[in-house]
């Protein structure tokens, strides 16, 4: 079995600044990490490998420095890594990004299962997983909280819903996105880091993937971001003084004034 894990490199914090013109998020100088949601995807793939034997490949689209995150994934337990990198990819919206990743996944070899995080911490669209499935013509189950059974050509999973969960089964290959509940990700080991240094990571550009210029970057992105702004500040900070009795009385009066009670 071969499992592909799609990861994204993101800034380590969501406390970011927007440039003066409101056109760009300034992430310059911030440490970059594997998208925390993707660490659950990676961990699940490594657990499958440990339990029943599998090859784990990680793939990512991004600038050259995304290599560091791919090496970290190798050091955590992945066997192969692939980087899709080209200036022409910049400015891709989630639809275009999924198109790029899909062609990369097709090029990196056969696969039985593709695992994604449920969304990225920065863009937070949650689009790439399902979009990737459609690009590859594969079935997909989103928000998987447990893999109940996995064998040749077959998977049964629990999918988290708004009011509980569903048990679903389907054929492989399949794309799944996973939620935090599925596992507790491990960290890269020192031994793994040493080993990861020696793994060669192929880097593929648009031409290597046979990508049409009209499907990538701004030209391939139907959506445009026209403005970025901070959220309206919260007028907070009214502390209610007094004893517990007095505090509760005041709060109840406030909630009544706001027509909550």
């Amino acid at each position: 079995m071969r499992i592909v894990v799609s990861i994204k490199q993101v800034p380590e914090t969501t406390e970011v600044k927007i440039d003066q013109a409101g056109g760009r998020v300034d992430t310059e100088g911030l440490t970059r990490i594997i998208n925390p949601y993707d660490t659950y995807a990676l961990e699940e793939a490594i657990r499958i490998k440990e339990a029943s034997g599998a090859t784990v490949a990680v793939i990512s689209a991004g600038p050259e420095k995304t290599n560091e995150s791919l090496r970290e994934a190798l050091a955590t337990g992945a066997d192969e890594a692939f980087l899709l990198s080209d200036q022409a990819f910049e400015g891709s919206d989630p639809l275009a990004a999924a198109h790029i990743l899909a062609r990369g996944i097709e090029k990196c070899g056969p696969y039985d299962l593709i695992i994604c995080g449920r969304q990225a911490m920065d863009g937070a669209s949650g689009q790439v997983g399902p979009s990737l499935a459609e690009e590859l013509g594969l079935p997909m189950v989103s928000f998987v909280r447990k893999i109940e059974e996995l064998k040749d050509g077959y998977i049964r999973v629990q999918r988290m819903t708004d009011d509980g969960y569903e048990v679903l089964e389907g054929p492989l290959p399949m794309v799944i996105s996973v939620v935090k509940e599925i596992n507790e990700p491990r960290l890269a080991s020192l031994k793994g880091l040493m080993k990861a240094k020696r793994v060669e990571i192929p880097v593929w550009a648009a031409g290597d993937l046979g990508l049409d210029a009209s499907r990538i970057g701004p030209a391939g992105s139907p959506t445009k971001v026209t403005k970025l702004a901070p959220p309206p500040p919260r007028s907070g900070g009214e502390m209610i003084p007094g004893t517990a009795d007095e505090q509760v009385k005041t709060l109840v009066a406030k909630l009544k004034a706001a027509k909550i009670l």
């Binding site: 969501t14 970011v16 998020v25 920065d122 959506t223 445009k224 026209t226 403005k227 702004a229 959220p231």
Partner: peptide
């Protein structure tokens, strides 16, 4: 014209789809 949060709600992006 759509407004959607990014970066854990620290950024609100205005998104359009012109074509």
């Amino acid at each position: 014209v759509a407004v959607r949060p990014m970066y854990g709600g620290n950024v609100l992006a205005t998104v359009t789809c012109p074509e």
